[in-house]
Design a binder for these strands. Structure first.
Length: 447
RNA sequence: UCCUCAGUAGCUCAAUGGCAGAGCAUCCGGCUGUUAACCGGAGGGUUGUAGGUUCGAGUCCUACCUGAGGAGCCA
């Protein structure tokens, strides 16, 4: 800005307006709503940091200013100047007596802002997701999401982990092609990654403790409140770690993130309407139960009539099963040692009972289901090769992965946490589609 | 892929087989403390699509389309 253009009043944000009580300041933002009562106007402004009500009395301002505010339509962009006044009637504690306003762009009333301050259906809101993000609730969710991501990265960065980014474009199928999005890669078949795990096993052998944070793609035809086709995962991988080390890492990691959100994003969580007492219970240690114990819990639940279906030992838990098991605890529960037959090919068998895998799922409370899945990885070259054959996977594609066991194989373990499921749980949301700015689901690629 | 539900004004929803309605939004008017403000008025419709039954279909039947929730699968 040139010195000659310097504004006479300080430009501030609604978040910081309390520091300017009694002063005249300038805000830059949008009209959120306009109420009027005769010769009084109550324009409500938002600027991305908060919401504040302005007051314009007809006998206190010029006719031009009064008319230009009176003519403002919802979401018109505007630069307003006024005197900040504390008022106990105001939700944020402050109001602004407007003394000047410059309309940057007035929304045409013939084509008004589609999202009125009334109720709307999900499909309509999703069709206007690019505008829906302006609502206070959606903005608050995105701030909590950003805090969760920052907390996750801080947790690992401060504990000797190195961020290593796995590729997003990957060659031939790793765990079967049915759930992969195919991409034409210069006339060669490539796929969007469905997990960075195999690659960060390689970087873990190079750097010791690593993590990745990036997008993941699954072409599953799932239409539930827990599924997106494009979602973000944070995945740590640790050389020489065992399953027990991994479970300790997972519970400390989740507790750290929840505490950080309570510390830094309490106003946003309150805007969303989260029951904070549920989050304040989250502390280490988390309960650790084996698959066998979980199955017993489900069968007892069925006998009491609390679980609809009788669970057969050997199967994987369905969503209602996970909800029941997690409902028995007031914090996330870690279920470990599933039958190897229902788990991924790369998981280390339990040396005590080789038919079980050294793996763990972390189930969030309040019915949010699995937010973390992890395991100790196979350390032996011969066993891994055997598993690749058993799963009828192309050995050539895994040559590099086998090399990790050929050249100094060690016990190692890691997990993946789905960011959107963590955000949905911490915010107490009904659906993961509100946890990401532009969700991709089975039936939505727009906007 | 399967099960259930839904599609009527820009939005949210009503309408026993018998004239297509309301609230919000938009426009006009009123109100000096409104809190999703309120009060009065105006404009706004190919009832998802195609057939069928009927004197008459938004409503009943058939097929299809679109979407939502759930199952499976998964984080």
């Amino acid at each position: 800005m040139e010195p000659s253009e310097k504004l006479e009043t300080p430009v501030t944000t609604i978040r910081e307006i309390g520091q300017h009580e009694g002063q005249t300041v300038t805000l830059r933002g949008w009209l959120y709503n306009l109420r009027e009562s005769g010769k009084l106007l109550f324009p409500i402004f938002r600027d991305g940091s908060g919401v504040i009500q302005g007051v314009v009395a007809k006998n206190a301002v010029s006719p031009d200013l009064f008319d230009s505010i009176k003519g403002l339509t919802q979401e018109s962009s505007v630069i307003v100047t006024g005197k900040v006044r504390a008022d106990k009637r105001a939700p944020g504690g402050y109001e602004m007596d407007v003394t000047d306003a410059q309309v940057v762009q007035r929304v045409n009333p013939d084509d008004p802002y589609p999202i009125s301050p009334k109720e709307h259906g999900v499909d309509f809101l999703m069709e206007h997701r690019h505008l829906w993000l302006r609502s206070p609730r959606q903005a608050a969710i995105l701030r909590v999401r950003a805090e969760i991501i920052k907390a996750a990265r801080d947790y690992f960065d401060d504990r000797g982990f190195t961020l290593t980014d796995p590729p997003i474009l990957t060659p031939a199928a790793c765990e079967g092609t049915t759930t992969l999005f195919p991409v034409d890669y210069f006339d060669e078949q490539a796929y969007l990654t469905q997990s960075g795990q195999l690659y960060i096993e390689a970087t873990a052998m190079a750097l010791g403790k690593v993590y990745s944070f990036g997008p993941t793609f699954r072409a599953e035809k799932s239409k539930t409140r827990r599924h997106l086709t494009e979602f973000w995962m944070v995945e740590p991988e640790v050389a020489f770690a065992t399953l027990d080390d991994l479970m300790t890492l997972a519970e400390e990691f989740i507790t750290f993130i929840v505490k950080r959100c309570l510390e830094k994003r309490r106003p946003e969580l309150e805007t969303i309407g989260r029951d904070l007492s549920q989050l304040e219970k989250i502390a280490t240690p988390f309960p650790r139960i084996s698959y066998d114990e979980a199955v017993q819990m489900l069968q007892e639940g069925h006998a009491k009539g609390l679980v609809e279906n009788k669970f057969e030992w050997g199967g994987d838990f369905g969503s209602p099963d996970e909800t029941y098991v997690s409902s028995q605890f007031d914090r996330p529960v870690m279920v470990h040692r599933y039958p190897a037959a229902i788990k991924a090919f790369y998981m280390e068998p339990d040396p005590q009972r080789p038919e079980f895998a050294l793996c763990v799922d972390v189930l969030a409370p309040e019915g949010y289901g699995e937010i973390i899945g992890g395991s100790q990885r196979i350390g032996s070259y011969d066993l891994l090769l055997k598993r690749i054959h058993e799963h009828e996977l192309p050995e050539d594609a895994f040559k590099w992965y086998l090399d990790l066991r050929k050249f100094g194989g060690v016990p190692h373990a890691g997990f993946g946490m789905g960011i959107e499921r963590a955000v949905a749980w911490i915010c107490g949301l009904e659906h993961v589609r509100e946890t990401i700015p532009f969700p991709r689901t089975l039936h939505r690629l727009y906007p």
